[in-house]
Design a protein around this nucleic acid. Sequence first.
DNA 1: TAGATTGTTAATCGATTAACAATC
DNA 2: TAGATTGTTAATCGATTAACAATC
Lengths: 216, 216
Amino acid sequence: MIELIQNYNSKKIYERLPIYVHFLNSIQENNISSTTISKSLNLGEVQVRKDLALVSGKGRPKTGYATKHLLKDIKKYMGMNHVSKAIIVGFGQLGKALYHYSGFSELGIDIVQAFDISITNDFVKGIEELERYCLENKILFGILSVPSMEAQATADKLIRCGIVGIWNFTSVRLNVPSHVVIQNENLAASLSVLVKSTLDKKAGNKLEKSKKTNIS
Amino acid sequence: MIELIQNYNSKKIYERLPIYVHFLNSIQENNISSTTISKSLNLGEVQVRKDLALVSGKGRPKTGYATKHLLKDIKKYMGMNHVSKAIIVGFGQLGKALYHYSGFSELGIDIVQAFDISITNDFVKGIEELERYCLENKILFGILSVPSMEAQATADKLIRCGIVGIWNFTSVRLNVPSHVVIQNENLAASLSVLVKSTLDKKAGNKLEKSKKTNIS
DNA sequence: TAGATTGTTAATCGATTAACAATC
DNA sequence: TAGATTGTTAATCGATTAACAATC
């Protein structure tokens, strides 16, 4: 008999692991249990345990996990043990806000430079310097916060500069070659989801269901 | 025989419908096919058709959907046919960027006012005016972009003001009563997902899998 | 009529949760 | 030993995709 077990680790776990990292950084205890984590973060107890088992599996019954050790394992798994350098293109209000956002560094991400067509202050370089800068500094990640009109052209340029991961804040659905990863951050759509979910709940639906009942 | 069919409409569809709205607003054609939509937005053809069937179901073989009609049906389904008023608390760089973000209005969302502890310009009111403003104007949605330290206390205050949907940009996992909907927008975690996914792809994994093979 | 396109059922894939055995 | 907690398998739930019938 041949048995094939595939232990998938879902994409969703990638969203939760940074949350654990942030939490573990904030506590003092040397040991922490999955129960405590799950309660603090409003996540399922089993889910937390499964996540941790996948990336660490060094928990001990009764005592839980060694905080430091767990943190190290999660960071290693997520590639946070070395710094990932990212640049921003489009230094409007959103680009500026992201540039100064403080939550990235504990996750091993460093926004090293911003670019824009107009140089408004010391933080930003002109777009014409983009290519040389990215190639010289081996930048892999780009944050796209330009006007929609320029989204695709700018993405194309980023890819020519060696960027392989694009965080896309524009409303344009980018076309990119298969070696490039796009993460869309559609703020307007996201707020819409909140509005609709809230209206659903007010109307008494968890999620709307339509039910057909056939009796034959 | 009793047959029970439940036609779930997933949460995920709520993320796609605004994307369709934006796309439909951008085209000139009177009719549009699901094939064209799916190609333009890089979505599965069947998925688009299923989404549209759920909210409209007025497509015609050979011609597709009447653009105007489809747009109306999606908007109605999502509650975009009336304006949802939202306020922002925390007028730092991120709050400012969101306040001036232009993508919300076509989705029926209007950010009507910003609040902060310090009144830095004409757009913002002092936090002490929050309660009266929200109650008087029947505000249901709040955007939380305050420092993490004040996140929970501010959320509590919002809820006392009648807010039932909170778009949470802080890294705090809020505790709220069951009638309140939270949508977490964890920017740091989101960029982490991009980094990890990109590193995966570079390493040649679609998604990492661990395989156990037992032969007995 | 032929072909393009919709709409729906069934199958597959992916993610979470429940149950419970293992262990410190 | 008892009890708290981990780790894992099986079951359930949710979302997408494939196959194909219906129809303009």
